[in-house]
Design a protein around this nucleic acid. Sequence first.
DNA 1: AACATATATATGAATAATCGAATATGCTAA
DNA 2: TTAGCATATTCGATTATTCATATATATGTT
Lengths: 109, 109
Amino acid sequence: MPDTLRRFKAEFFQALAHPTRIAILEQLRDGELSAGAIIEKLGMEQANVSQHLAVLRGKQIVVNRKAGNQVFYSVRDPLIIEVLDLMRKYFHAHLSEALAMLEEMEAHR
Amino acid sequence: MPDTLRRFKAEFFQALAHPTRIAILEQLRDGELSAGAIIEKLGMEQANVSQHLAVLRGKQIVVNRKAGNQVFYSVRDPLIIEVLDLMRKYFHAHLSEALAMLEEMEAHR
DNA sequence: AACATATATATGAATAATCGAATATGCTAA
DNA sequence: TTAGCATATTCGATTATTCATATATATGTT
């Protein structure tokens, strides 16, 4: 596999590598939502969510549609959702170790 | 979905978010390899590859087995390979845009 | 024991990601 | 036009990643 493709994949994973961006994709699982709706559901700062949406847009993981005042986002390809589902399976398969890792992470704060 | 799970997923994707680590996982797709074999196949610095192996180990994406002088690595759970396969499918589905993004990435150097 | 080989780790410098605050843009309504 | 709402962008400080260099550890060999 050429190195350019590896770099592209890495950039893609990088785009998924943030809890807020995962949360956004979960919200979009069942269809499109306006930016405002996402912000409200996540209960986070408008600018912050908008920055994360920009990252997802930049990698074409989500697409947007303007409707008057608002911008509606959706996941471009359901394969993305499949990836997240596989991850959930993975998480359940290794639940105890995953929890240990999380505790470890907590301890380091 | 609890925030802990989102953080876990994010950490996982973060671990995949580097071209060298993707390359390592590709090498391990067909079974275990010694650290030295991976280093040789990638043609990179020993210390650098070892650092990346440490990242993958830290997230339990790979496991290792010591045999005398050497350390053999393998992918812990075939689900990981499934994720990579899904990603490949994704890239093929969006190949032309992916290539455009790559050109973009190149231009920024 | 001394030495070689395989692998891991520590350190520091360069680069990139993140967040909040402030500001900008674009659309709609009056 | 002005005002107001929805969303995006810029800026700067903080924190995290990455790489190369140097060093450490562990095993094997003589």
